[in-house]
Design a protein around this nucleic acid. Structure first.
Length: 157
DNA sequence: GCCAACGTTGGC
DNA sequence: GCCAACGTTGGC
């Protein structure tokens, strides 16, 4: 089992949306590195930290799991879609997506500044200037963040 | 809304 | 293959 962090802007799709929907396809990935991770490394059942980006504050808000193997992202062929890719070939689609299933909403948000405050997380891809919207996390990082979420928020300062 | 960091494109 | 220009991400 591997562990991931996936970003979503809550204005576009939030953890509450996923809780309501149960399972949703994760479309719109248009980055080769993220695509390759989904295509080559994601396995059904892998756990995902659901991260709210462009939020106030940004941070990890929930857990999801990978619900199926990757398949073509239909939005790449939709001229009206935000992530339309006119250069993608119908017979050899460039972009894929996976289905993601809601697991839980964390007892509290673990914010980006809080994540940065933990030396244990210093190597997280998220904290090292990566803009990858799908990124691997280690089992230790995953568990550490869940453990923090089950404790009271640390004192500020 | 600004803009730094990063990724992609395309001319050469 | 280099790299400048451009586009996007995402924190602030």
């Amino acid at each position: 089992m591997q562990y991931w962090l996936m970003k979503s802007e809550p204005g576009d799709y939030s953890i509450d949306d996923l809780e309501r929907d149960g399972t949703e396809h994760w479309d719109g990935i248009r980055n080769y590195q993220a695509r390759n991770l989904m295509r080559d490394q994601m396995k059904v059942g892998d756990r995902v930290l659901f991260y709210h980006s462009n939020a106030k504050p940004p941070g990890v808000v929930g857990v999801a799991e990978i619900a199926g193997r990757p398949y073509p992202d239909h939005t790449q062929f939709d001229p009206d879609a935000k992530y339309y890719d006119p250069t993608s070939d119908q017979d050899n689609p460039r972009w894929i997506m996976v289905d993601v299933r809601f697991v839980e909403k964390l007892p509290r948000l673990v914010s980006l500044p809080e994540l940065r405050s933990y030396g244990e997380l210093a190597d997280m891809v998220l904290l090292n200037r990566s803009r990858l919207s799908v990124q691997p996390v280690t089992k230790e990082q995953y568990q550490f963040i869940l453990d923090r979420a089950r404790e009271p928020a640390p004192e500020k300062g």
